[in-house]
């Protein structure tokens, strides 16, 4: 009995010691090209590469965990992971629950519709249209705030939003401009679709770019990660990853 107790304590101490060197990171996996689930079930993409670069910089190993977007903030708060690196925009609403590092990229939001779409983005133009967005995103907030009367369809993942635009169930969709271009317009299924309207970057909805989410009490981790972002920007790591995915600078 005593021996099992000692063994249990020892195992807790060992795993505790191990987790000091691994950083558990919540990522999503259905948001190309930022995070994509590969055929083998592993995650890859811009977010994942940034996460690994940051962990290297901090002398830690990243343990990437695929997490549903819906539950990603609760997962952080329940300590299922220690940081969210999932293209999450730094918004006031989210800051009520968690804390953010400085941004690690910032790109505007845009609408996508069929390239022969004959409506414009305005309260009148969207009157009888259906817009698709991912549930719990800045784009949902934007649509509900700016166009409260427009019919909105909510999806669990961004990939499902693309599927339904391609199928013609929604007239237009809104998402990050880069995600929309790389993840949809540049793919086979995005043929016949194009950006419509301007770029949107309203601080009230869209925040100050995408940051890394951490628990409010983890101040040290927050400053360490912010410093690491600064460091990989300076030492060229960031530029290297950036060039792997995009032909322009997204910071």
């Amino acid at each position: 009995m005593k021996r099992t107790f000692v063994a249990a304590v020892a195992s807790i101490l060992i795993t505790g010691a191990a987790s000091a060197e691994t950083l558990k990171v919540c990522a999503e996996g259905a948001y190309p090209p930022f995070s994509v689930t590969t055929e083998s079930g592993a995650l890859e993409g811009f977010d994942i590469d940034i996460a690994n670069a940051l962990c290297d910089e901090l002398g830690m190993t990243c343990e990437i965990q695929a997490t549903e977007w819906d539950g990603i903030i609760p997962a952080l708060l329940e300590k299922k992971c220690d940081a969210i690196i999932a293209s999450m925009s730094i918004t006031e609403e989210r800051k009520k629950r968690i804390d953010f590092t400085t941004k690690y990229y910032n790109t505007p939001a845009k609408f996508i519709a069929a390239d022969d779409a004959d409506f414009e983005i305005s309260a009148d133009g969207l009157e009888d249209k259906i817009i698709g967005v991912q549930r719990g995103t800045i784009h949902q907030d934007f649509m509900e705030g700016e166009y409260p009367d427009v019919e909105l369809k909510l999806y669990g993942t961004q990939d499902e939003v693309y599927l339904d635009l391609a199928a013609g169930r929604v007239d237009a969709i809104m998402q990050d401009s880069i995600a929309g271009k790389e993840g949809f317009l540049d793919q086979d299924q995005g043929k016949g679709f194009a950006f419509i309207g301007g770029s949107y970057s309203v601080p009230k909805y869209h925040g100050d770019g995408a940051g890394i989410g951490v628990r409010k009490e983890d101040k040290a981790l927050k400053y360490a990660l912010s410093a690491a972002i600064e460091a990989i920007l300076k030492n060229g790591q960031y530029g290297f990853i950036n060039a792997k995915y995009f032909d322009f600078h997204i910071y």
Partner: peptide, 23 residues
């Protein structure tokens, strides 16, 4: 709720996602 209908569970998920809560 997985095919975008706002039934009881769909509403629950929307509330969860809107306020970043789990339960």
């Amino acid at each position: 709720s997985v095919i975008t209908l706002q039934d009881i569970l769909g509403t629950g998920r929307t509330i969860n996602a809107k306020y970043y809560v789990a339960y």
